[in-house]
Design a protein around this nucleic acid. Structure first.
Ligand code: MN
Ligand code: MN
Ligand code: ZN
Ligand code: ZN
Lengths: 158, 158
DNA sequence: CGGATAAATGAAAAGGTTTTTCAATAAGGG
DNA sequence: CCCTTATTGAAAAACCTTTTCATTTATCCG
């Protein structure tokens, strides 16, 4: 965690941006979150680390971090998006439909598929945006437990 | 085009929704668009077909069409999204970075990749959201032409 | 075909979110 | 430490989306 924080802090410094108290609070908040957060959520949580944190600064910092590639907007099933820490390089996020907890994956191999797309459309493919949704291990376990429960009820009903 | 219109109209009817003049204008507008449109753009263009078209109705119709699977929100590179007609079934959109013109592709074969993701994350994968970006044939041609032009200028400069 | 009926509509208002402006503050270099 | 300039938060403005409600319109029936 300290590593990830340092890597992000370094990105600010390397590009000549100051590492202010509000920015540190925002980075730490994002690093401590299991799910993508909205700007308002980031402010609320961030104020526990830096009491004066303003919403405007959250917007500005997210914009900057997106530019630096240290944060990414993640689309949620319910439509709008939240922001999650992004590792350097090309990665994707896998989001749990139920609890929204998010995991990042590196190394996507869509090459063959994108070649087909290029052939079929005539477009010169330059990039892609992919998000995967599913049920995290914890939510699967919870489902399984409830199912067992349901079954016993069903048995009674039958 | 008439086919696609009829298919969409049928979706309204089949699900018990009325095929009103505003809705027809919105569908025709989307069918006639080369790129994903924002609600405001849909209203503007749609008013050429049905002068009284209100923005609220655009929002409501998009919501309904999304439910019926006949329209989909497409993420644009500049952040926010527009809406484009979607064919039945699971498809994806390929968007031109330059002119935003959009093409729909069916049949994605991410199966192997998603299996890997499931293994690595422990998530039970239930879906994915994929958008591909690139340069459409027209914009590629334009680029090529400009390059030729640039070269002649460079030659002069040298 | 009208007429009845419930769905659908547009205008206005409300509710949110994001951006801009600007005086005050704080980070980092010297 | 002080200076300089980037950064900040509050307030206001600008946007975008949703809700409310009286009126209109599509569709079903007789
Ligand atoms: Mn990828
Ligand atoms: Mn797919
Ligand atoms: Zn979960
Ligand atoms: Zn193009």
């Amino acid at each position: 965690m300290a590593d990830r924080y340092e890597a992000i802090a370094e990105q600010f410094r390397v590009h000549g941006y100051k590492l202010t108290q509000p920015r540190r609070a925002i980075v730490q908040t994002l690093l401590g979150a299991a799910k993508p957060l909205s700007p308002a959520e980031i402010q609320q949580r961030g104020q526990k680390l830096y009491h004066e944190l303003g919403l405007v600064t959250v917007y500005r910092t997210l914009e900057l971090m997106e530019l630096l590639g240290t944060v990414r907007a993640v689309h949620l099933a319910d439509g709008c998006h939240g922001f999650a820490i992004a590792s350097p390089g090309h990665t994707h996020h896998v989001v749990c439909e139920r609890c929204h907890c998010v995991v990042e994956i590196a190394g996507c191999d869509l090459g063959d598929f994108l070649d087909t797309v290029a052939e079929r459309t005539g477009y010169a493919i330059t990039g892609h945006w992919l998000e995967v949704s599913g049920l995290c291990a914890a939510c699967q376990a919870q489902d399984a437990a409830e199912h067992t429960h349901d079954d016993s009820i069903d048995a009674t009903a039958r």
